[in-house]
Design a protein around this nucleic acid. Structure first.
Lengths: 146, 146
DNA sequence: TTCGTTGTAATCTTTATTGTTACAACTACG
DNA sequence: CGTAGTTGTAACAATAAAGATTACAACGAA
């Protein structure tokens, strides 16, 4: 299976918040319009991003804003914030290898480290990409349209 | 979501085939016993591994064998053989960003390369781990038990 | 020709994701 | 005040994917 679209939606949300911060009140409805999903889906994501300290959400009057410098928010932060995979494990290990079989009872010993190594390589790459880059790229693509 | 357990099961299968090749006829039932899943699940995986040229499956009399040197089979080969993710894309991109919105119509331009970059980092790490290592580790863990 | 096996279709169950409705709680503002 | 526009969140429906299971034809060796 693939990594949940919550991840790309969350990035989309942050790009919107920054892009439109001066011209619009960026509400869950506004964001839902750009992403093209139900506003409740957006609100749930906003809560997760807020819990991770990435954004502030203004209750009552509405709107969301980014809570810290864009250069200090990485793809990995977002990935973790929105719980893109189950309990932090990228690979779904088959549940009950047979303990009676020599291979079955050792397969975890053999694989766990190697799977972790792969997952870490992926996470390190995510850590190297910041929202700042993403927002800058977005602005430059929008510029090019004019 | 996580990467399908087909991936870890496929590795488990290969470890079994090699470990038991001299002492047992390694059938789908035998493998199903070690992995602890239905034999049909195993047969489907055997077909995928066969299609990728990784194993041969003996029809009629039964059994499976590895088709090429262990050092030439990487985790990435297995990962791709068993279709661990949908149509080769690790990330599920939200389907219909709004083309009326400047961010919505450019989000793919902005993200596609970066997502690919992360996926490639993961795949490169997988390419560096061979079944030979895995089989050797398995044998050494089994040795240690005695 | 019989036996154990593979190859594969069909179907069911389970689980996760995503979508939707509904409504209480909240804040700013007239 | 109280009203309008929001957020926060529960509850539940819809969809989709994974995995389990049953069934059986095709195959090969003895």
């Amino acid at each position: 299976m693939q990594i949940s679209s919550r991840f790309t939606i969350a990035i989309h949300i942050l790009a919107c918040i920054d892009t439109f911060k001066d011209d619009y009140k960026v509400t869950s409805d506004f964001l839902a319009g750009s992403v093209n999903v139900n506003p409740v889906v957006i609100r749930r994501l906003l809560q997760q991003l807020k819990a991770a300290g990435i954004i502030n959400v203004i209750r009552g009057s509405g709107g969301a804003e980014i809570a810290k410098p864009l250069s200090e928010i990485t793809m990995l932060d977002i990935y973790k914030a929105v719980d893109s995979i189950e309990n932090g494990e990228l690979f779904h290990f088959h549940e009950n290898p047979n303990k009676e079989c020599p291979v079955g009872r050792n397969i975890h010993n053999v694989l766990d480290d190697k799977l972790k190594q792969v997952q870490t390589a992926m996470e390190n790459e995510m850590r190297s990409i910041t929202i700042q880059e993403i927002v800058e790229d977005t602005k430059s693509y929008i510029q090019k349209e004019l």
